[in-house]
């Protein structure tokens, strides 16, 4: 009985190059997959987060790019730099905030946290959503203590969307425990105001329900709109890419 023998086809130089490049591509794809498929640009990560949630692309109205926290590892004096990014997009009746946390400068995927807001459910003309201002996220080296302590710090940010035409300046007042905090903001190119309250530190959720007053001013300083309400909470908080 004739023994069956399988022979791979003999490849020429071009064939070998193609085979090697294809095998390299396959291995690089596997390696990329192992690192959770990081994308080079944070904007791409934001768009990917939308696609993973089956959402159509929204209009990006705000991108906060933090200067990055420094993380010291024990025994190493040189910090590892990380960057955080916050994107806010507005879709058809909703807003989406995507936070990319712990995004190292190079080859690794960030942690992606998504919040969505049903804008149609808000009563006021101007829609309001919150975001954590993540540029305070950092690790501080505590010289006086042993080892290194990771400290997370956030401050509350409030974003006003759908501003009346002609708005050039916004002023927001928030009341907490009988105290009144006031801050103002210009209008960015996408037509939104970002109000930052660094004194309202801690988890943003501490701020939900606080009463606010929003005043929007035109070029001549006249009040275009005054709106009161309470700081809303997002409808969904989603963590992408983690499997318990």
């Amino acid at each position: 009985m004739k023994k069956f023998q399988f022979h791979l086809p003999r490849l020429g130089r071009r064939g070998k190059i193609l085979r090697n490049l294809l095998a390299t591509l396959l291995l690089l794809t596997l390696i990329w997959g192992q690192f959770l498929c990081p994308l080079f640009w944070p904007e791409w990560e934001f768009r990917r987060a939308e696609r993973r949630l089956l959402l159509p692309p929204s209009e990006v109205v705000l991108h906060l790019d933090s200067p990055g926290g420094r993380i010291y590892r024990e025994g190493q004096s040189r910090p590892i730099l990380r960057r955080d990014h916050q994107f806010i997009g507005v879709g058809d009746g909703y807003a989406i905030t995507v936070a990319l946390k712990d995004r190292p400068p190079l080859f690794s995927a960030p942690h992606v946290y998504v919040e969505t807001w049903d804008l149609s459910a808000q009563e006021g003309k101007v829609k309001v959503i919150t975001t954590s201002i993540a540029n305070l996220y950092a690790d501080w080296r505590r010289e006086a203590e042993e080892g290194f302590l990771r400290t997370y710090r956030f401050s509350m940010g409030l974003v006003a969307l759908d501003l009346p035409a002609g708005t050039v300046q916004g002023e927001l007042t928030v009341e907490e425990d009988g105290k009144t905090y006031q801050t103002d903001s210009g209008v960015n190119d996408a037509g939104v105001c970002l109000f930052s309250f660094p004194h309202l530190e801690g988890d943003v959720s501490f701020s939900y329900g606080l009463p606010y007053t929003l005043r929007l001013y035109g070029q001549d300083g006249a009040v275009l709109l005054e709106q009161t309400g309470s700081i809303p909470q997002s409808d969904a908080l989603i963590t992408i890419g983690f499997r318990s």
């Binding site: 990329w32 997959g33 498929c37 994308l39 990917r48 696609r51 993973r52 949630l53 089956l54 969505t116 409808d235 969904a236 989603i238 992408i240």
Partner: peptide, 12 residues
């Protein structure tokens, strides 16, 4: 597209 495989959220 394994790099952007969709996920379902119960909240939605």
């Amino acid at each position: 597209k394994f790099w952007e495989l969709g996920e379902l959220e119960g909240d939605w």
